[in-house]
Amino acid sequence: MRIRGERGTLQAQEQRLAYLFLLVPVAIVFLVIIFPTVWNLWLSFHKLSLRDLRTSAPLSLNFTMYSYFKVFGDPDFTSSLIATLTYSIGGTLITLFLGLGTALLLSPKFRGRGAMRGLFLIPYIAPVVAVTFTWRLLLDPRGPIMTALVNVGWLDQPLHLLGQRPLAMMTLVLFQGWRYFPLAFLFIMARLQAIPRTLYEAADVDGATPFQKFFYVTLPQLKLILATLGLLRFMWTFNRFDDVYLLTSGAAGTKVLPVLVVDYLIGQFDVGAGAAAAMALFGCLTLLLIIYFRWVMRRAEQVEV
């Protein structure tokens, strides 16, 4: 009895200590993420402008669908949904493609491989502000690249790569690939090196050509990591704000949902509409995630059977 009692207090002590250790992280996550998310829902059901905010108590109970009607009725919203999907699908595919290509390129050992790997990670590590402004100047119609293309005679007129439909969206997708392929590459490379050598030896015995080895050995082994990466990249591209805002400010058909959210907030001073648009973004993301997971689950089952 006594021993049990002592153990009980020890355990209680351990539990108290654990709560103490976790207090700050949990409190901050609650304060800065969980509570605001719930409150965002609340805000989306209010008609609230930035100016009201200073005077009125934002805890009023006058619920209204005003913001949702405004957002869903906004032609910008529909086009922004399309833009977001184009950007996310295109950006994800090109990131995976470049990541896979780079991983295959750097998988054999050769001199300078380490240096190349280091170099390839820089686009992701450098501040987004620095790289977006550099590309903006580089791609400017009067900038070095366009001037060179016109001088060589490949173009009659300089193209407005960041200010013209549909070029602006294509440029954003390419930029997405340029900036995030390092991540895909790191993951794919790690998986690539974990593929058992024996699989390739067996393929060699069977007389497989390099292409056959890639399609029948390498690719199936990478399927899972490619699917996971694809999902994650899709999600993160879907709510990406910085890159689009800094490159085009949402001009020429590139106003993606996150940019629309910020535009409602600081462009139109409409807190309610911003919150409603953020809820829409959140809803889309959740929906897509569920669909994706069910699809992956079914596929996984089929593969196993």
Partner: peptide, 19 residues
Amino acid sequence: VYMFPAIAVAIPIYVIFSK
């Protein structure tokens, strides 16, 4: 929490921080 999109909390945090 790790998967949470920052943009989803941007507006409420903006409001709280302003207040």
